[in-house]
């Protein structure tokens, strides 16, 4: 113990925190128009989408979502979705749930739009990969609540801060799994493309991306799940929706409200997870709808599990709402 106090005497204190403060002030001052534009655009996006989701009668939209699930995955899943979504309505959680859904959809679209190109770049160049990887590690492991501060600094209290934090938090699996998926494509296939004189861009679009698609879709699925978990934490910066209700129940120690909001998150999570994992594997028609989970669906589900496994392990620490697998 004596030694360590000696050490602290020898080593100067490095004011990392102060530097960061200065940097943030500088960014805020110099990039105000940019920040404003981001703020306006994403705010409008979330609000507009929320309004659109709340426009039709709740029961009609729930039925449509359940139908989508039934078509894309299986009849059983469609029915279970309908029951879950109706429960949302009866718990009077529909409106906050749709706010949260709008937030994660906007955040996911932006995260995927950034994540996939970065993932492709990282797969093509080991140098890019070496730069990107620690940044992703930083984004994923930094305690989620720490994001709240800069987000609020830049964008103030409200839904925009929620969207930005959610994007930062949900981005990494999109990048990682895109990179993994493209790197996993058999090198001989890429070589075959080159050998027949195909330009690199065409090889990417015609060979690498189609073959990496299941892995990329697993990444998108993970992005959505992480976005959902972050959307709840975004309640702390006034992003509203289910997260807002969770924060309210916490401050009031209202167990009933907390459980209702939590249950709504779980229903939303399971629905989105199953729906998006079905997207990844069943692009050739709708076999599950006809075969009710016949052999095709079973093997697809099995392979999706093996692809998901390492990712699940890596993200467990992030307290994401874990859908039953």
């Amino acid at each position: 113990m004596a030694e360590s106090s000696d050490d602290s005497g020898l080593l100067p204190r490095i004011p990392v925190g102060e530097w960061v403060d200065t940097a943030f002030d500088w960014v805020t001052e110099n990039f105000e128009p940019v920040l404003d534009a981001i703020s306006t655009a994403s705010g409008a996006g979330v609000d507009g989408l929320t309004d659109a989701l709340l426009l039709p009668p709740a029961i009609l939209l729930a039925a449509l979502l359940a139908l989508l699930g039934g078509v894309l995955r299986s009849v059983r899943f469609g029915i279970a979705s309908l029951v879950g979504l109706l429960l949302l309505i009866s718990m009077e959680m529909w409106e906050p749930a749709m706010q949260t859904l709008a937030l994660i959809l906007v955040a996911t679209v932006i995260a995927v739009a950034i994540g996939i190109p970065v993932g492709i770049a990282a797969a093509k160049s080991s140098r890019v990969s070496a730069v990107v990887r620690p940044v992703l590690d930083f984004m994923q492991t930094m305690p989620a609540l720490v994001y709240l501060i800069p987000a609020v600094t830049f964008f103030g209290i409200g839904v925009v801060s929620g969207v930005v934090m959610t994007i930062i938090f949900a981005l990494p699996p999109g990048v990682r799994l895109t990179e993994l998926g493209i790197r996993q494509v058999d090198g001989e296939l890429v070589e075959a493309g080159h050998a027949f004189g195909s330009p690199p861009g065409k090889i990417l679009r015609g060979v690498q991306l189609p073959l990496a698609l299941p892995t990329i879709m697993a990444g998108v699925n993970q992005v959505i799940m992480l976005a959902l978990s972050m959307a709840v934490i975004a309640g702390f910066v006034g992003a509203g929706g289910l997260g807002g209700l969770v924060v309210t129940s916490l401050s009031r120690l209202d167990l009933g409200l907390g459980v209702e909001a939590g249950l709504a998150v779980v229903i939303l999570a399971i629905y989105l997870d199953r729906l998006t994992s079905a997207f990844g594997q069943q692009r050739r028609g709708f076999p599950s709808f006809l075969s009710r989970g016949g052999t095709v669906t079973t093997t697809a589900a099995a392979s999706s599990r093996s692809v998901d496994a390492p990712v699940t392990g890596a993200t467990d620490q992030n307290a994401r709402p874990e859908p039953a697998r």
Binding site: D186, E188, E191, F196
Partner: peptide
């Protein structure tokens, strides 16, 4: 040149 003059067959079919 590859497009017009040469083609290739691979060990693992590719």
């Amino acid at each position: 040149l590859r497009q017009e003059r040469m083609s290739m067959v691979f060990q693992h079919f590719a």
